[in-house]
Design a protein around this nucleic acid. Structure first.
Lengths: 342, 342
DNA sequence: CTGAAAGCGCTTACAG
DNA sequence: CTGAAAGCGCTTACAG
């Protein structure tokens, strides 16, 4: 004898918490608490509820939960680019840490635009995520205020803050630039150029570190800097390398603000029959895929992208749980990887 | 005389639809309809409601909406990698199309694992998105069934389906491999190798196209194929190039299944003092950044990543709106870009 | 074209 | 430790 299943007119048709509770012989709220692992539920109930949920293939309706709690199991991650593996590496690591906690990651790509980032902040804060992670500190005043006023826990990635009261995970871009300059100087390069594109704050900070070190050594030549807001690319690296070497053939050391630019320089050097590192030493930044394999193998600065993502995610987790964190600022450092090009 | 604002104990504290309605002097449901642009609302009301919403800075609570409609304004996009720009390019385009429609994109990265993808399918389908986009057709039977049974509109990207009843946007990987073989043959290459890694279906399909063309020309040599499931990378390209040239120095044409592998081959060729294309012609796949700038400039197959993303997103939009679509299968083609390496 | 009622599926807040 | 009630903020379904 079969009872006809009543046709539901609304809803998803999926099993609900109420059905789980009924099957387990407890109240809905007890089922809710049992499934959430709240300690105030008797052990015998917990098992019964879990069992019932399993049998029914129960999955909590996240919309209902979000509505009831006035918050969703979501973390918004704002990056300036998805093309640049610097950020996808970090995102991967964030996923790895947060997914097991049932947290969904919303990726916002600002395309290196402050205004676009402000829109994203506004958008995500409209349905407050339980936390957010943003890239660096360069944003509109409005975006800054929105984040602060939202009360949503926020971790800043990729840079170190000046202030004490912000949670950040990164490394000193300035020191990294400094290290590159010192390496070039120690190598005996006398005319050191700096080539940068995109001109986001991190790029500028490493440029500043590089410049300062040259100045301290009395070797800074302002006209040996090429800074363009155009997006970084291998092609642009080719172009700018040719430009500087044509204008100043005596340049014997170049720091290109990232590996794309540096790879382009390597290619163009070959086309121009300029030997690397004999005629000119070349240093990149980030140690992306390929840097270790090109000809000559690229000397560059390895940045801890995955580790930043992982650490930032763990930090955010702690803050969201209101745990006390040892230090709000985590410096993960960097490493100058000396290979063949410089 | 000021009335003290009642402190809300629950909820987000954000303005609700009810407040908007009250301010506009209509019922909540009329406000709801007005804001959603349902034609059954008098024009005068629409303006009043919109005005009130603007004044209150009203943003609909997406959780409440999702709960009431038993569906969220969300599209899940499943890709095998975020490191490979093939997929980030597509994702970018999808974002561009879907964002203006208020649709949030959930990115699932399967890391080229069928099991991981099945988990993702299960996860996303647990809170059904309004639509989903997946990569190719190679998945577990369970994942396939879950998608079909869910009733969630789904568009398949990157490949063309055999069946008629699936919505897909891509190009023929098989034909692309065929085109590469023909080019190498026309160039006069007699011993043509195929080097592939990762071994996802698309890679294998272009390999098959390549192989068939060689067979038709009576030029296929089985031992000139290196297929490894290891992840593609420039470094691996170096390694495999050295391997094949050491084993068979008479090879004079190589199709590497993607640009990473090909770039590695170019580097290693230089290290081995093998001239490209004089000694061996090299063809890559995808035309990623750098292909046009390396030395020698890489001959490769340009694939329509952004266009696939854009087109797939528009197609999904149509399906979700239940509009009739002219054709479920959209072939965007590819283009052999002949540069210097072959 | 407009609205009062009910419901979506959870969790909070209050009792016991 | 457990539960009945109320509420989160929308939309669906039914009337008029």
């Amino acid at each position: 004898m079969t009872t006809p299943t009543p046709r539901k007119t609304r809803g998803t048709g999926r099993p609900t918490l109420e059905e789980v509770a009924r099957r387990a012989g407890v109240s809905t709220i007890t089922a809710s608490r049992a499934l959430r692992g709240l300690s105030s539920v008797g052990a015998e109930y917990v098992d019964r509820v879990r069992e019932a949920a399993r049998e029914l293939n129960y999955v909590a309706n996240s919309a209902a939960r979000a509505l009831a709690r006035a918050q969703s199991d979501t973390v918004a991650v704002l990056v300036p680019s998805l093309t640049n593996n610097v950020f996808t590496d970090a995102i991967e690591a964030i996923h790895t840490v947060l997914r097991p906690h049932g947290i969904e990651i919303l990726i916002g790509n600002s395309h290196y635009s402050r205004d676009a980032e402000e829109d994203l902040v506004r958008h995500y804060l409209a349905s407050p995520p339980m936390g957010m992670m943003v890239t660096g500190f360069d944003r509109t005043e409005a975006a800054r205020r929105l984040i602060d006023a939202s009360g949503v826990p926020c971790v800043y990635m990729m840079e170190l803050a000046k202030a004490e009261n912000v949670y950040c995970v990164g490394f000193s871009q300035h020191e990294a630039g400094d290290a590159v300059a010192k390496h070039l100087i120690a190598r005996g390069c006398h005319h050191n150029a700096f080539i940068a594109a995109q001109l986001d704050q991190r790029m500028l900070q490493r440029g500043e570190g590089f410049r300062r070190a040259l100045q301290r050594a009395g070797m800074h030549e302002p006209d040996l800097e090429i800074l363009t807001p155009a997006p970084s690319s291998i092609g642009l690296g080719c172009e700018l390398f040719r430009q500087i070497m044509t204008r100043r053939p005596d340049v014997d050391g170049i720091f290109l603000g990232n590996d794309d630019l540096a790879q382009g320089a390597l290619f163009e050097a070959r086309r121009m029959n300029i030997r690397v590192p004999e005629d000119v030493a070349i240093v990149g930044f980030n140690d992306l895929a390929g840097a270790a394999d090109c000809v000559p193998r690229l000397t560059t600065v390895r940045t801890p992208r995955a580790e930043m993502g992982r650490t930032a995610a763990h930090l955010l987790l702690s803050i969201m749980r209101q745990e006390s964190v040892p230090t709000p600022m985590i410096d993960l450092g960097f490493e100058l990887v000396v290979r063949e090009s410089a």
